[in-house]
Design a protein around this nucleic acid. Sequence first.
DNA 1: TGTGAAACCTCAGGAAT
DNA 2: ATTCCTGAGGTTTCACA
Lengths: 162, 162
Amino acid sequence: MSYVLQEDDVRILQLLQHDARFTVKEMADKLGKSATPVYDRVRRLEREGFIRGYVAILDKTKIERSLVAFTHVQLKEHSSDMLNAFKNESSRFPEVMECYHMTGEYDFILKITLKDMNEYNDFILTKLATLPNIRTVQSFFVLSEGKVETAYPLHWQAGKKK
Amino acid sequence: MSYVLQEDDVRILQLLQHDARFTVKEMADKLGKSATPVYDRVRRLEREGFIRGYVAILDKTKIERSLVAFTHVQLKEHSSDMLNAFKNESSRFPEVMECYHMTGEYDFILKITLKDMNEYNDFILTKLATLPNIRTVQSFFVLSEGKVETAYPLHWQAGKKK
DNA sequence: TGTGAAACCTCAGGAAT
DNA sequence: ATTCCTGAGGTTTCACA
């Protein structure tokens, strides 16, 4: 049976999703508690797997990765072996930040980041297109980002207390 | 003129991209330096905008957001006013985690997370499809995730030192 | 690179509900 | 059985030399 979030847990998760460097004390002050219960909740949320990790988010324009592409791939063969093979091999490329097996018209959507169109062209020709079993590769490029959020919105539906 | 990364900066960024809770001392030990230079570099990387922030990554299956959709939208009108209007309004929905203005066949790709297909259906009908100026909405659903990485690979091309 | 003070983390023990 | 607090030792942060 899995741990059921309480209101304080939700508030802690909301805070940490937006800034992982809140100190236990800062959060305790916001929640009107002392440090210990907040400390214990954070540890429990980590232990129970709600928090997968803490990461720094970089500005991709500062590190030569301004080009973002969503590349849609159709395979020829769709046996589970073939699907897993593509998933594993495409995920191995460092340019591939995300790889999703999809329903519908496309088998995979890859999120790819690179410096510019030259590098993208190179990547497709010398890396992605060399994988076997590919039927089509269709690329869409990001012109501008309207929203890029890592924090899930959390609602707390009043649990049955007492 | 913008700050040029040195090898230690790159190594620090790589560490923090994978675990934002490395202490300055831990990183200093890995780099074979004392704490102060590492501390100063981290502050500079933040100040110069390389590090946008530190966030906790949650497990979406634990918080009722297992369904991930990439929704492709075509608009009718493509004036910059209309494009901005859609970008702003769609970004306002909490279900929309990411919103990209794209080149090519589709005008926007939205990454949407929700609990299940019922909620998705509801979202499309009562929220997204009520926005004006939409021509088509095409949804693709994630069956499984092969790779989801927030850390950009960083290479350090030996700068001209000296 | 090292020092030092302030702030914080961590975890024991114990109180209150 | 939880949930909470106090308190104290060890660690981290951060300005300064």
